[in-house]
Simulated scan of single mutants.
Amino acid sequence: MTLAPPLQLNVGDDDRIEASPFGAHALSWRCQGRERLYLSPRASFGEGKAIRGGVPVVFPQFGERGGGPRHGFARISAWEPLDGLGSSAPRLAFRLRDNEHTRLHWPHRFEAELALEPSDNRLRIALTVRNLDDAAFEFTAALHTYLRVADIAGTLVHGLEDRPYFDSARDGKHVEATDAPVRFEGEVDRIYPGTRRVLRVTDGEQMLRVESEGFADTVVWNPGAELAAGLADLGPGEHRHFVCVEAARILEPVRLEPGTGWTGAQHLIVGETLR
């Protein structure tokens, strides 16, 4: 399979988004003259390999919660570009329909659409799934968003202080609320169920607000130095420059009846400079 070249949409003098039809994968979002997403300099763009960084689309399964490839097949599939069709606002959009490859892993007829909709100081990333089958099906999903930060050592995620979580770095252990923002002192891999508050990511220089719709859970992830050292598509010390804050539906799958659809979205909103 020959990978289609990335598409780019300019939304200002130095503001733009860039996305690959492979995986409907957002690669870059420049807002107010600054890159807001992290893309590994060693990211692979080969067939069958997920791209490290940007916004991988996790569907129809999160992690190993299903019989298909880890985190599903959407992020390693070729999507059809739909940019500019049926929308009056600037956007890039892509569509994936079931095919011979997807049905090997998930035997359902479906249509998925991923839309990237930038505006003055924000980016809306929306995933829509429609059931084209004759029977109901269930799926889990996430937007595995890599946010660029100055240094993970000074990065905090606010808004989850009152929420318990499942610690995937410790075999899914249930942990009670800590009453403190999330800090990154080694591997962090957490699933926060039932999150409703606006999240704020601060890195000592900038603040980014993260909001979601349709997604009930939040995943916060950074591999830490030890795990990162074993990732071939992540260079030395590169784990210090990103944190993943993911809008997700994991613990309670989405159930769609025939002919119905579901949309989940994540909003990234640039806030004030902190110094």
Rank of each mutant, 00 (worst) to 15 (best):
D151S: 00
V149W: 00
A169M: 09
G204Y: 09
T145N: 03
T178Y: 00
R170D: 12
L132V: 07
A169E: 14
E211P: 00
D189G: 05
D171W: 10
L147M: 04
R200K: 08
G154M: 00
V210M: 04
A136W: 03
L160D: 10
G204R: 10
D167Q: 11
L199I: 11
R163D: 15
F139P: 09
V182S: 06
L147T: 06
E176D: 12
D133Q: 13
G159I: 05
E187H: 04
E176F: 00
D151C: 00
A142R: 05
D151A: 01
R148V: 12
Y165D: 14
D134W: 00
A169V: 13
E138D: 06
L208H: 11
G186W: 13
I191Y: 03
K173D: 14
L143E: 07
A180F: 09
S168I: 10
G172M: 10
F166E: 15
R209I: 05
T155G: 00
H158Q: 04
I152Q: 02
L208G: 12
V188E: 05
K173C: 08
E211Q: 01
T195A: 10
E211V: 02
H158T: 06
D179M: 03
A142H: 06
D189N: 13
P164H: 14
L160V: 13
D167H: 09
T195V: 15
A135Y: 06
E185L: 06
T178R: 04
L143R: 05
R200Q: 10
F139T: 12
H158V: 02
Y192R: 04
E205W: 03
T155M: 01
E138L: 01
A141M: 06
Y192N: 07
R200N: 05
V149R: 03
D162W: 00
G159A: 05
A135G: 10
E205Q: 14
R183P: 02
E205F: 07
P181R: 14
E138T: 13
E211H: 01
H144V: 06
F184W: 10
D167I: 11
V201W: 00
A180K: 15
R170F: 02
A135L: 04
H144D: 08
T140P: 01
V198L: 09
H174P: 03
E187D: 10
P193Y: 07
T145I: 05
D162F: 00
E176P: 05
T178S: 04
H174L: 08
P164M: 09
G154N: 08
L199F: 07
F166L: 15
G154T: 10
P164S: 14
D179T: 11
T155K: 01
A169D: 15
